[in-house]
Amino acid sequence: MADGIRHGPLGANCVHLCIDMQRMFGPGLPWAVPWMQTVLPDVVALARHHADRTIFTRFIPPQRPSDARGSWRRYYERWNGMTRQALAPEYLRIVPELEDFCPPAKVLDKMVYSPWTEGKLDEMLANSGVDTIVVSGGETDVCVLGTVVGAVDRGFRVVLAEDATCSSADATHDALMALYRSRFSEQIETAGVEEILAAWP
């Protein structure tokens, strides 16, 4: 259960970071996230509320497994059908309901779970005055996890939109939500989209 907005309203220095809501995670594909369609209306509500303050990330696989390094190469040998040589380019795109917000929303591509590792998000936020990040998208226990931990490390106030995040695994989604609320209680707030929208005029 969400613990709510506990550290005051969300102001002009807040951005919405929406993680990997892409067509490649849709029905019938190896990486399908069944919950994605369930949470999509709430993600749309967040994006619509401040489209100009929204950044969508996209997870971009390598062209072929041999282009990846270290354990990523083994990963893509297992998931060869999700490399760019096998996957139609359209599947890398944001789902249509969210793509409509671009622009003014921005898109950031990444080749690993975290949007921070490659430095592009740091560059995008540099000198912006941003101090708060609302996080939505998927998966709760993979790329959202990498996003949230990176934001905490950088000192951002993090608000996780509990009903706008999704995973393909119920057990680890629940475990991570419990972790966010307990071990990171001073740095991460979990709240429903309705409460977030009310706190972010």
Rank of each mutant, 00 (worst) to 15 (best):
P41R: 14
P41E: 09
F59L: 11
Q22D: 07
H49L: 09
T54H: 05
H49I: 06
L40N: 10
P30Q: 11
M21L: 11
H50C: 06
D42I: 03
L29F: 03
M24T: 06
A47H: 02
V39L: 00
G26Y: 04
M21Q: 07
L40S: 15
L46R: 09
W35S: 15
T38A: 14
D67A: 11
V43G: 05
S66T: 12
R69L: 12
Q63T: 11
F25G: 02
S71D: 13
G26I: 07
V44Y: 06
A51Q: 13
D52E: 15
H49A: 13
P41G: 14
M21N: 02
P34Y: 03
T54Y: 09
H49T: 08
V39M: 05
V43A: 13
T57D: 10
R58H: 10
G70R: 10
Q22W: 07
A68H: 07
W35K: 14
Q63S: 03
I55P: 05
S71I: 11
R64P: 04
V43S: 08
F59A: 14
R64S: 15
D67Y: 00
F59V: 07
P34L: 08
T57Q: 11
R48D: 13
R48A: 14
R23A: 05
R23P: 00
L29T: 09
R23F: 00
M24N: 03
A32H: 12
R53S: 14
H50F: 00
P65M: 09
H50I: 04
V39I: 14
G26K: 03
M21P: 00
P65A: 15
D20K: 04
G26Q: 11
Q22C: 01
P65G: 11
G70A: 10
D67Q: 12
R58Y: 01
D20S: 12
W35N: 14
P27Y: 01
P41W: 06
S66M: 07
S66Y: 01
R23Q: 14
Q37D: 15
F56E: 12
T57Y: 06
D52W: 08
A68F: 03
P34V: 00
L40M: 14
G70Q: 09
V43K: 04
P62Q: 12
P61I: 03
W31I: 10
H50A: 15
F25D: 06
T57M: 02
L29Y: 03
D67I: 06
P61M: 04
R48C: 05
T38G: 07
V43F: 02
P41A: 12
V39H: 02
L46V: 12
M21D: 00
V43E: 10
R69T: 11
P27M: 04
I55A: 01
A51C: 10
F25V: 02
Q37L: 10
F56V: 07
V43Q: 11
F59K: 03
Q37M: 03
R48K: 13
